[in-house]
């Protein structure tokens, strides 16, 4: 009798992966049908058909008041905030993380600061951001930056500082200056880890994005969800949530692929099954 830990799924992998999704869908449909049977005007669990027509309405018909396709306008403004926020965070993290990780002087100067800053709950300073940066785009982007950067910096500096001492000595014995060591030894070895921790930061980034949009915005995925909540418009809210999840998933997947393509050496050791 083989141990369970040694049984590999093989071709059944796809079936197994889809099974839980199918079960959730089935459970939803049954719940929805049940509630509709009891109360024909129930809004909490709308049937799939109603969600489809709601999606059609927001995504493929112009909004009567603004003349825009709300779904795409929302997606665009949310992704814009997210991408600006994450780009700035990554830039900060690269510069600070490499410096703190490689240079003992930078480590002594900035390491305690980032340790403290990373403990500040970003949501607690959201009001400050609104006061300082106003209610428009900047404060939402700032929330993402402030929420994500400290963790990225800490993670990256830790990665760089745990490069074997031998490697740094070796680089110097090949004539590398500090700058050359930074860009030819530390940076390339930090990149896969940076992508990895960026992937882990996608969750928090979306959290900060949607929170900021919920409080103050005139478009955006989070804004729409919280707006529609007043009308109990579950037929639109649920597809929006699924869409946000899908976006996050695709971003995560894309980052993973980029890392595999660009840094194959970093993925040699991964356990495959």
């Amino acid at each position: 009798m083989r141990r369970v830990m040694n049984i590999r799924p093989g071709r059944a992998r796809w079936v197994l992966a889809l099974l839980p999704f199918a079960l959730i869908l089935l459970a939803y449909m049954m719940g929805s049908a049940h509630r509709r049977a009891e109360n024909p005007s129930d809004k909490v669990l709308p049937p799939i058909s109603e969600m489809a027509s709601a999606v059609h309405r927001v995504a493929f018909e112009e909004d009567k008041r603004t003349g825009q396709y709300l779904f795409w306008t929302d997606t665009k403004s949310s992704l814009k905030r997210l991408s600006i926020g994450l780009s700035v965070s990554v830039a900060f993290a690269l510069v600070l993380g490499l410096l703190i990780g490689l240079l003992p002087v930078a480590n002594a100067t900035f390491s305690p600061l980032t340790a403290v800053l990373s403990m500040v709950p970003p949501m607690a300073i959201l009001p400050i951001l609104f006061i300082v940066f106003g209610l428009d785009e900047l404060s939402k982007v700032m929330l993402i930056i402030i929420g994500v950067t400290p963790c990225l910096v800490r993670d990256l500096s830790f990665t760089v500082s745990s490069l074997p001492r031998e490697q740094l000595v070796k680089a110097q014995s090949l004539g590398a200056s500090t700058w050359q060591t930074l860009i030819r030894v530390a940076l390339p070895q930090a990149m896969p880890r940076l992508i990895e921790s960026l992937r882990l930061s996608l969750g928090p980034a979306f959290l900060f994005l949607i929170s900021a949009e919920a409080i103050s915005a005139d478009s955006g995925l989070g804004y729409r969800i919280f707006l529609l909540r007043r009308y109990l418009a579950m037929d639109t809210i649920l597809p929006y949530v699924i869409w946000i999840t899908l976006l996050a998933f695709l971003l995560d997947f894309a980052l993973a692929q980029i890392s595999r393509r660009a840094f194959p050496w970093a993925h040699n050791a991964e356990r495959t099954s």
Partner: peptide
């Protein structure tokens, strides 16, 4: 120049 027992070459 130097060659260590381990970590002498760059993995990347």
């Amino acid at each position: 120049g130097v060659v260590f027992q381990r970590y002498s070459v760059f993995p990347h």
